[in-house]
Write a protein that binds this DNA or RNA. Structure first.
Length: 646
RNA sequence: GCCGAUGUAGCUCAGUUGGUCAGAGCAGCUGAUUUGUAAUCUGCAGGUCGGGGGUUCGAAUCCCUUCAUCGGCUCCA
């Protein structure tokens, strides 16, 4: 007998060779129907794999990620089988499970094209196959055998993959008439895959390399119950309503015009107000935190970017330099602010006592993003960074980092952005020569970042090899309405620019020393930040950010005079207020202004006019009772003060 | 840039196999109504069906091309 240890610490004995599924069945047949994968001795495996020795066992139900992973990975194989039956000779790339569902990259061959219109037929075939309760069987094969199988099939993508695998570690999975090279694990059979939805098709380069052939990627999602699928589709539908492009238009925040150019956002009055609120807020904080604001031009001599090295690296892919008419000098639209800031640093000598020098600018930069990249406000060709550079001594690096992390946490909290992730990017330990700067400095900088994050209790994932060539960095990521990740804030150590611009300071030893530079943005770009903010709030901004704080709604035109007095009073009190004097019923006015996400609706009828009060209704909540206009103004000021403290 | 899809009034969408197919709702403007916490009623106006070519007796509808947008891939200083 073998001893199996369960997550709760209990131990039970079973016959050697028993599978996880059989164990589940012995515990309860119902449990067996709800588990999709097992972790045996910390390795996720097929439920059907036999266990021969003492082991720890975790059975995974749908709520566990490994269960969904096996479920969706199996679904990808199911889709592949359906595809092969509909498109004989189709070739397969890779088909993994992803965060929400799965995809498979395929080469239909023969000039065949798979489009959205073909998805229902594939879906139908999948359902038929799933209902056949096809068993997934695992087989270990030699490299040669695997190679022979896929060579015979003529699938050069699989043979390419097999060529890179080590002999002895290759497994195949078969269900029905379909066999795939695969590490697994898989479901015992196709039967649990009951609800199936293929979502979309897209092009994807083989192995993610744009020099390779473009394959057709089909995205899908499956569930063990139709209800779960329906819920997911409803979620997607709801998320689309929060799309910042849609809300931006509805709330008249921003627009794009083909006459101005793609990827060049035009901020409408309300959007500009929102933007300005963010800038004012940030500026006040920066001043409190020892930053000095600078302003630099939108263009710079091309030689500036040659000095910085950016011209060499990105010049060809940028908006091209423009020449002056007489002297023929070359200027570029500035793709970043740092070279300008380095020149400001160099405008006067610095003492070690002056450092850190924190220089900030809301700098608008221009980058040529490929046409297919443009995406609402999140990916544009003109955007404003809340950029800053800290010029400091090496011994100040960690403290500077901590101060910036603290600032990021403070700002994100102020805008109610509570779900974000942080990633520390270090250099590739096997490839040190591609980085600039001494080993010693790198080591210090990397440790400074890791320690700073630790001391600020910031949860991070550390990714070696992702650092920029000029220094390690810490990035902050948030998700949009449908779960796509976008990078917002970034903190980057830079050893490169101080060298290139020959930045120095006088040390206590009266020698010249090289400062270290930290690039840092918190919003990242105002455009992207506002996009994320819109999607996270569905346009219901915190009061301090809302372009308009209140709207006065007279119940009939008889009360317009008093309504106007309230309107004037509030605007004179610096509370941006609207008035709705249309001859509509109050229900209609409330509805329209609720949809415009105006935070406060002030209803004024006979009672209010006589008593000189306003009836306050909070957006999304309802009636808050009546009060004097002065009291309402106080309420607004207090609420804002509660939202943001400096 | 690459693959696929889409493009009809400010917005959301109808327009069957090419033949009164240029429509609806909302928004806008008229007029009536004077309203108590999420949609009052009437009338009017609004589109060379993204642009340009072509096929046809006839094109929103079919073909080509171009622009833009959407979903991905690649890229992202």
């Amino acid at each position: 007998m073998i001893k199996i240890t369960f997550p709760d610490g209990s131990v039970k004995e079973f016959e050697p060779g028993i599978s996880s599924l059989e164990i589940a069945e012995q515990i309860s047949p119902r449990l067996a129907g709800e588990v999709y994968a097992a972790t045996v001795n910390n390795e996720v495996r097929d439920l059907t794999r036999p266990i021969y020795a003492d082991a720890s066992l975790v059975l995974h139900k749908w709520d566990d990620e490994p269960a969904r992973h096996a479920f969706w990975h199996s679904s990808a194989h199911l889709m592949a089988e359906a595809l092969e039956s509909i498109y004989p000779g189709i070739k397969f790339g890779i088909g993994p499970a992803i965060e929400n569902g799965f995809y498979y990259d395929v080469d239909p061959g023969d000039g065949r094209v798979i489009t959205d219109a073909d998805l229902p037929a594939i879906e139908k075939k999948m359902k038929e196959l799933a209902a056949e309760n096809l068993k997934f069987t695992r087989r270990e094969v030699s490299k040669k055998e695997a190679m022979d199988i896929f060579t015979a099939k003529g699938d050069e993508y699989k043979t390419e993959l097999i060529g890179e695998l080590e002999d002895g570690s290759i497994t195949l999975y078969t269900q029905g008439n379909f066999t795939d090279l695969c590490r697994g694990p898989h479901l015992p059979s196709t039967a649990p895959i009951r609800a199936i939805k293929l979502l979309n098709v897209a092009g994807a380069y083989w192995r993610g390399n744009e020099k390779n052939k473009m394959l057709t990627r089909i995205y899908g999602i499956t569930y063990p119950k139709q209800k779960l699928l329906d819920d997911y589709l409803v979620f997607l539908e709801e998320a689309r309503k929060r799309d910042h492009r849609r809300i931006g238009r509805e709330l008249e925040l921003f627009t794009f015009s083909p006459h101005v150019g793609m990827g060049l956002p035009l901020w409408m009055p309300k959007g500009a107000e929102l933007r300005q609120n963010l800038i004012d807020f940030m500026t006040r904080i920066l001043k409190k935190r020892g930053y000095q604001i600078v302003t630099t031009p939108h263009i710079g001599n091309v030689n500036l970017y040659k000095t910085s090295g950016h011209y060499e690296k990105y010049g060809k892919d940028s908006f091209q330099p423009m020449a002056t008419p007489q002297e023929g000098e070359q200027f570029m639209l500035k793709p970043m602010n740092c070279p300008h800031h380095c020149e400001i640093y160099n405008a006067k000598p610095h003492s070690y006592k002056d450092l850190p020098f924190r220089m900030a600018e809301f700098g608008t930069v221009y980058r040529y993003e490929q046409s297919g990249e443009l995406h609402g406000l999140t990916r544009v060709r003109s955007f404003t960074q809340d950029d800053a550079h800290h010029f400091c001594r090496h011994d100040q690096l960690k403290e500077e980092f901590k101060s910036i992390i603290d600032l990021v946490q403070f700002i994100f909290k102020a805008v109610n952005l509570n779900e974000y992730s942080a990633q520390i990017s270090l250099r590739d330990p096997d490839n040190r020569e591609k980085y600039i700067g001494s080993d010693e400095n790198w080591e210090k900088a990397e440790n400074a970042i890791i320690e700073a994050a630790g001391e600020k209790e910031l949860e991070t994932t550390v990714v070696p090899g992702e650092a920029a060539f000029y220094g390690p960095k810490l990035d902050f990521m948030v998700k949009d309405a449908i779960g796509r990740k976008w990078q917002l804030g970034t903190i980057q150590v830079d050893y490169n620019l101080p060298e290139r611009f020959d930045l120095t300071y006088n040390g206590s030893d009266n020698q010249k020393h090289r400062p270290v530079m930290i690039h840092r943005a918190i919003f990242g770009s105002l455009e992207r930040f506002i996009a994320v903010l819109i999607e996270n709030t569905a346009g219901k901004f915190p009061l301090w950010l809302a372009p308009e704080k209140a709207v006065v709604l007279p119940i009939s035109e008889k009360f317009n005079d008093y309504a106007r007095k309230v309107f004037d009073f509030l605007n004179n009190s610096d509370i941006c207020t609207l008035i709705d004097e249309r001859s509509e019923k109050i229900g209609k006015k409330i509805r329209d202004n609720e949809l415009k996400r105006i935070p406060y609706l002030l209803i004024i009828g006979n009672n209010e006019a006589v008593n000189e009060t306003v009836s306050v209704r909070r957006q999304g909540e309802g009636d808050r009772g009546t009060m004097k206009p002065e009291e309402f103004a106080d309420l607004v000021r207090k609420e804002i003060a509660g939202e943001i403290t400096f």
